[in-house]
Write a protein that binds this DNA or RNA. Structure first.
Lengths: 347, 347
DNA sequence: CTGTTAGCGCGTTCAG
DNA sequence: CTGAACGCGCTAACAG
């Protein structure tokens, strides 16, 4: 009955953002002093500082990041570009990076290229535009790193290495992981062990393949082309290729070199009604939650993914503080976790 | 033998970034004209435009985002804050948002609060500092939205609603989802149906609970307190509480109101050696990949998560173009997907 | 300890 | 169609 709904009373006051000048005026100082007080650099009397902080708080001051970045010629945003944010591995990697960055008061901005060099370069340009002081990435095509480095942006490669120029990196001992997976299968009596990898020039896959070969040799098993399938990255027919591998290679043990491949193999095996490990044993690389929820649980080469991210962030922070330090490369160790998907060969 | 590795030849030329002034000078025009040519606004002769574009390309010009933002008083970065980026649901939500934003030439910056109002506010301040024109969030504590709105930042709530002030939102019909899950179990003859939810004031959980109650009523089943467990968000003893629910409520059917709860129930049931659905039937809310990989696969109320994100982004873009439009609320429909984890009651 | 000055790189007036 | 001038908000130098 009373106040009928007025034309919404224009309920967006949309106040102008409070600036340093505003709080300086309010506190009776100059903007410079306000600046010094609010970010703790330079001399400011206790009295002034107190007043300034109080006013800033009262007015709800939020520093304008763009102005600061423009002036200082670098932002507090660290760029991260990974292959696929939907993949648990990369998501966890990013989480690790974020943990460390946050403590150091940097913002993280993540971008996904789809393992496409072009998108990676686009991401690099974005970070260049934002004047990011550093970028962490799972490299796909060299160009991005080069572009960044050329502009004085620190780059850390994580999970795999690619850059021609030397740069900081943190990776897994993939060769060892591949070897252990292969030897585990060989130790169970498997003689036809397949490798399922990705067709790239990435050091991660190359290492796992290398480990596979070393493993075979150690176990005195021959290397057979028909037992190796390397999937093009965006192949629409991955499952068909897996079927082909099964048909032509007749493996009794399969080493799938990443978590998505493991999932796809698993689906194919199940669809075919093949028993695991009765008919085929399966070892994955990179442990993700579903692997220990399915029946049987998947034997896997586990990698310290979160730690991988944390180290990468550390390396970057170190680099930001010491631009002339020699490049550092950290190698983390994977660990074989034996579960139900691997068993003795019977064929 | 030849050139011994020199002191690395100072191989970081670290060129100064190319500015608009640089390319203007090179092309023999003023910076203003360069600006107009490069971002297509205002009149520029074809000749000048051509030269400018060529020079910009040759010099590898990357616009300084901070300068642009400072001048225009708003950036091209849309903020997104979700509860937990590690959770597949929120990750997919973000992916949907990103798809749409990218097409409209906006950058997305995601932040995770841990369902903590304080972190959410911190996120809002970050976006305020970056002069984000809009923010999309799964709200937890009201304050952030208010802060943002007050400063004229467009806000879209997604997955749940919270704001006192009216604002755009896109949500799922949770009531219906909860009802269908409950009726499905009731239809199978279950009389002791438990609800496992989260103890929050979120509309999502409230809706699912409401649907549960409606479902019970429709099926002429009594509402029993002992069959309802609402978990505090960061409870360290969730599994113990689930055990308690099992002991005290003796349910033969369980409706777990989100994907993480479904996972936890599943783990507890398995640990206890209870058969699914022989001893207990389980329905989840929000379909995620593991649910159809486990044996038996989980019956679930599926929601169009990616679409949820896409719509939220659309709503935001719409709002950015029409600040005075009336608030829009979109409600998307969930869908019951029956799989093996639900079966007839026998007790 | 403080204020003044200047400029980061850009886009937007406004004359010409 | 173009250029000159200005200012977005902040901080680094420099006097005082």
């Amino acid at each position: 009955m009373s106040a009928s709904p007025q034309p919404d009373e224009q309920r967006s006051p949309v106040v102008e953002p409070v600036t340093l000048a505003d709080i300086a005026r309010e506190a009776g100082t100059s903007a410079s002093t306000a600046s010094r007080a609010l970010n703790g650099r330079g001399y400011v009397s206790e009295a002034a500082r107190g007043r300034l902080l109080a006013v800033a708080d009262r007015l709800g001051y939020v520093p304008n990041a763009s102005a600061r970045t423009l002036k200082q010629r670098r932002s507090r945003v660290v760029g991260v570009v990974v292959s696929d944010l939907g993949n648990q591995f990369y998501a966890t990697l990013a989480a690790g990076i974020e943990q460390v960055l946050r403590e150091a008061d940097y913002q993280m901005m993540v971008l996904g290229d789809n393992s496409e060099a072009a998108e990676e370069v686009e991401g690099a340009r974005t970070f260049l535009a934002m004047r990011a002081p550093g970028v962490i990435m799972t490299p796909v095509g060299g160009d991005a790193t080069e572009l960044l480095r050329q502009q004085g942006v620190a780059v850390v490669e994580v999970d795999r290495r690619l850059a021609d120029v030397e740069c900081d990196a943190v990776v897994i001992d993939n060769e060892r992981g591949g070897r252990e997976a292969t030897l585990h299968l060989a130790g169970l009596g498997h003689r036809r062990i397949a490798l399922l990898g990705v067709e790239t020039d990435w050091t991660s896959d190359a290492g796992r393949l290398q480990g596979y070969r070393t493993g075979l040799r150690t176990a005195s098993l021959p290397f057979d082309e028909r037992l190796v399938a390397r999937m093009p990255l965006h192949a629409p027919d991955t499952e068909a290729r897996i079927e082909a591998l099964l048909d032509e290679g007749a493996p009794t043990g399969i080493f799938a070199a990443n978590n998505t491949l493991a999932e796809q193999v698993w689906r194919v095996l199940r669809r075919r009604g093949l028993r695991i490990p009765g008919d085929v044993s399966l070892v994955g690389f990179d442990d993700v939650p579903w692997m220990e929820m399915v029946e049987p649980a998947i034997t896997v080469v586990e990698q310290p993914t979160l730690e991988l991210g944390r180290r990468a962030a550390w390396l970057l922070l170190r680099r930001l503080n010491g631009p002339t330090l020699p490049p550092a490369v950290e190698i983390l160790q994977p660990r074989l976790v034996v579960r139900g998907s691997t068993g003795p060969a019977n064929g």
